[in-house]
Design a protein around this nucleic acid. Structure first.
Ligand SMILES: [Mn+2]
Ligand SMILES: [Mn+2]
Ligand SMILES: [Zn+2]
Ligand SMILES: [Zn+2]
Lengths: 144, 144
DNA sequence: CTCTTCTTTTGACTGATTCAAGAAAAGGAG
DNA sequence: CTCCTTTTCTTGAATCAGTCAAAAGAAGAG
């Protein structure tokens, strides 16, 4: 559970001004990993009812640019945000309900962290998305 | 280069009716790998000027559902389509210009094809997106 | 405290995609 | 070949996430 002070410190550490919307957005993303912008907006408004949706979008972009949050976007879904950054972890997405869970990088550095070349591209990151069914949807499918 | 007959056969093989829009859409995707819906629409209209955008969207969905085309959507980009299906290949995306190239699955079956479990999820596919710079953007960045 | 710069609000706007109704076409049966 | 049913296409409007732009407001350096 991040305190407001920890959040403010995190913002200053990356050279960002501390504003109410940014603090609230970062707290919301920390509390709701893999939430989309709409969810973040709703959560932020619980404590800051007058915040504009634009401020939330701006904050998310700014935080993502600063590396404080990470943005992922599985095919068919809107952008999701999380504060778990810098560890090259991956995600598993439920094909049925869209639920997302973290997957630690099992493949290891060889595949996921080492820069390499292909088709002349200079590669700096490997992003892995696993697709399947979450426990709930998996159970629902087995029943008659 | 796919002939119209090959395309029609492919449609019938998966139990789909053969229609002008579908044939044209499948040909367009085959000729322009990783094209988005707008590009497909433009290409289709070269030979079928009256086709509606909705018919193109419907065809893309139907073809994707039938497994004849594959849809990918890297973060920040609109959906892209390709006819190279069933070989679990991956993609490298240029961070600057958005260009996409194929990457054969180098990691091997262990990571990419074998179903596994995580957090109780039943995983059936691993999708890998590599991020970096294409040769052109890479060269542009090195210059003064 | 003051000033500059950055951030937020407001409200309109875009672009990709989807919805819904009726018209048209595919393809199987006769 | 013709008829019939079902699927697909056209048309036009609508939705949704996300963006743009101008003016008002707040952060924080000095
Ligand atoms: Mn995560
Ligand atoms: Mn490909
Ligand atoms: Zn699920
Ligand atoms: Zn490029």
């Amino acid at each position: 559970m991040d305190t407001n002070e920890q959040i403010e410190r995190a913002l200053r550490e990356v050279g960002l001004r501390v504003t109410r919307p940014r603090v609230a957005v970062l707290a919301a993303v920390a509390a709701h990993p893999h939430a989309d912008a709409g969810t973040v907006l709703a959560v932020v408004r619980e404590g800051l009812p007058e915040v504009s949706h634009q401020a939330v979008y701006d904050s998310l972009h700014t935080l993502a640019d600063a590396g404080v949050v990470r943005c992922i976007q599985p095919t068919g879904a809107t952008a999701r945000y999380e504060t778990r950054v810098g560890d090259n972890h991956h995600h598993v997405v439920c094909r049925k309900c869209g639920d997302i869970a973290d997957v630690d990088c099992a493949v290891g550095e060889a595949a996921c962290l080492t820069a390499s070349h292909d088709h002349g591209f200079t590669i700096d990151e490997a992003e892995v998305t696993y697709w399947g069914l979450c426990p709930r949807c998996s159970a629902a499918r087995s029943e008659p």
